[in-house]
Amino acid sequence: MSLPLVFKVDSIRQDSPNLKTYVFKHNIRAKSGQFLMVWLPGHDEVPMSIGWQTKEEFHVGIADAGDCTHAIHENIKVGDKLGFRGPYGTSFDYKDVDHLICVGGGYGTPPMLNLAQRATELGKKVTVIQGARSADYLLYEDLFNQLGVELLVSTDDGSKGHHGYNTDVLEEHLSKIDRSENVCIYTCGPEVMMVKVAQIAEKNELKCQVSLERYMKCGFGICGQCCMDDSGIRICKDGPIISGEYALEHPEFGKYTRGQSGKVEK
């Protein structure tokens, strides 16, 4: 059954100039990397990743990036309701991994926070490499610090951390890691960045998992709106988490997506 659950906003964090994190008091029981369809009645319903998550609460970081997310930013205050379907999709696999390297770019950081949280609970070593346009846009430094993970940052304007891309930081970091441990790279963010991360992983003979996003309708694998060429896999059901190696086999990875009508958009 896929009818929505409705929760009231418990609190709102302003985490960057255009990203608000909405906190809900509910045990959402999502596996790391799964997503929710977030419903704003009268507007739309959009897929969103889950950030911080405990038995008592879950966080959804929403960037003001489209009509629906803009309407949420404008209209939804503490005490207001949003609807949620899910959690849907595949999740990150970290069972046999000793050292997780989580590469988040822009609004791709929330699922990296969720993954870092799950992995540190199991006592695993976690390195988070976060890239943003400037220091103001870096997300969740307080929560990453609370987890005690190694946090490396880069900014496009050099206002904090490495001046440049997070993929530069990743390459630099990989030259220093202990290869006797089971290492896996995880990434979520702009697709061109994830292509680069998957290629870096391949070059370094390391495993990699990417978190993909496509325009979605049903969220549970029947409508066919989010399928990728040429395998035809459904990002809502066979994804959003797939291996970097498999992602690189898809001609559309990093190149194009399809919009609401199904038409290819470069």
Partner: peptide
């Protein structure tokens, strides 16, 4: 059902 793309 699943009919948006040829690959699907």
């Amino acid at each position: 059902y699943l009919g948006v793309t040829g690959a699907s």
